[in-house]
Design a binder for these strands. Structure first.
Lengths: 208, 208
DNA sequence: AATTAAATTAAACGAACGTTTAATTTAAAC
DNA sequence: GTTTAAATTAAACGTTCGTTTAATTTAATT
């Protein structure tokens, strides 16, 4: 799979990322993209073949650099709980910095209309889960984490909390008086991240 | 706001619910809807005026019966933690039984293309948050819940976990061998719900 | 039975869609 | 400088979109 795009192609990809994420795949026309990118409509078919393949290329373009920083984390000399905290921070930061593409993945991968290559993305998720599992089991072996934990449900709690917050952005902006983008981002970086860390820690160590 | 629809209108609404939720608003044509509902295309404009208003009516139709069972819960004579557990069960059940409409809300309310009436839905969410707050504060007053909890972030954790699981249905079906719809639903009802209850309880009572 | 209103239909509307064509410009190779 | 390939363009393609029209059928009212 080729990932070397020229300037024009990158421009198209970046505009598509913004528009797809804002208005959805079906809600964005290639005329919208070409106008915003100041590139002739025909260039999109010329470079990518079709709108659907543009989306596929976009996903590859944005997830190929997302190579696992997780594996480094596992090998670090840290307490299990510290590793989990770092993992959460890493997750939130990754997803928050690449909102556009994650929003698209979130929406378009779920649509029954799209028949994208689910396999590749599924493998990515499985790999991430394996890394998380390694950290949890290490903590259990060391006796700091309790035993009866459903590991595959931890990621939904971490990412789900973030996504749900993100999806209801206008609501929370209003509720929490996060009037500026900076305030909003800061809230994610500090309070939301801490909330998730606190939640997961409690789940992992609290004996009922 | 009128909520009395005749049989034909209800048929249209129910078909629209399924299709919007499966293929998105922009991904569904009114021809799709009319064909599936076996009703002439013109009837949709005739009854609802436009496709956009059909969506608005659909949301009203499905959320008007969603009147707060929460308020009953608050008044019940239960321990705070039991109330929280029941609230989670109620939330998951509600959202799980009305997947279609919640999926639509989730997707279309977030789209910058839609300019739906956010205000009404925002008020609904604020009301729900107030109910949750009442329960948490009661628990804190009774000394069973700890003090430093960011209450507005509890709902994202509850619903976010569920939604993220739901959004990645094919992945988890495969991972957890939930081959049939019954097995999948049962997993939500038992293990996923318990995971969320366990998580929130730990968050509320665990002192670090 | 005649009148009136509501429900339903097939057909057509103009606009927007993704894509292709064929001509032209730009750049590279020789 | 000529040739050749790549990049770029405006225009047109055929389809599908949401919506409207105008005619017809059904049902209710008098």
């Amino acid at each position: 799979m080729e990932t070397n795009f020229n300037d024009k192609q990158i421009k198209i990809l970046e505009v598509a990322e913004v528009l797809f994420s804002e208005k959805g795949f079906d809600g964005t026309s290639i005329r919208d993209i070409s106008k915003e990118a100041k590139i002739n409509i025909a260039m999109i078919s010329y470079y990518f073949g079709s709108k659907e393949r543009l989306l596929e290329d976009l996903i590859i373009y944005r997830t190929s650099d997302l190579k696992l920083q997780l594996d480094y984390l596992i090998l670090e000399n840290l307490e299990p709980i510290e590793k989990v905290n770092k993992l959460i921070e890493l997750y939130i930061n990754r997803v928050n910095c690449n909102r556009g593409i994650y929003r698209i993945l979130h929406f378009e991968f779920t649509s029954k209309k799209r028949n994208l290559n689910h396999e590749a993305f599924s493998e990515l998720k499985k790999g991430n889960l394996k890394s998380l599992e390694a950290i949890i089991i290490e903590g259990q072996t060391k006796g700091v984490f309790k035993k009866d934990i459903v590991i595959p449900l931890i990621t939904p709690t971490i990412l789900g909390t973030f996504f749900h917050f993100q999806m209801n952005k206008p609501f929370f902006e209003n509720l929490l008086n996060l009037n500026t983008e900076a305030l909003y981002n800061n809230y994610i970086k500090t309070i939301l991240t801490k909330h998730i860390q606190q939640t997961i820690k409690a789940l992992l160590v609290y004996e009922s």
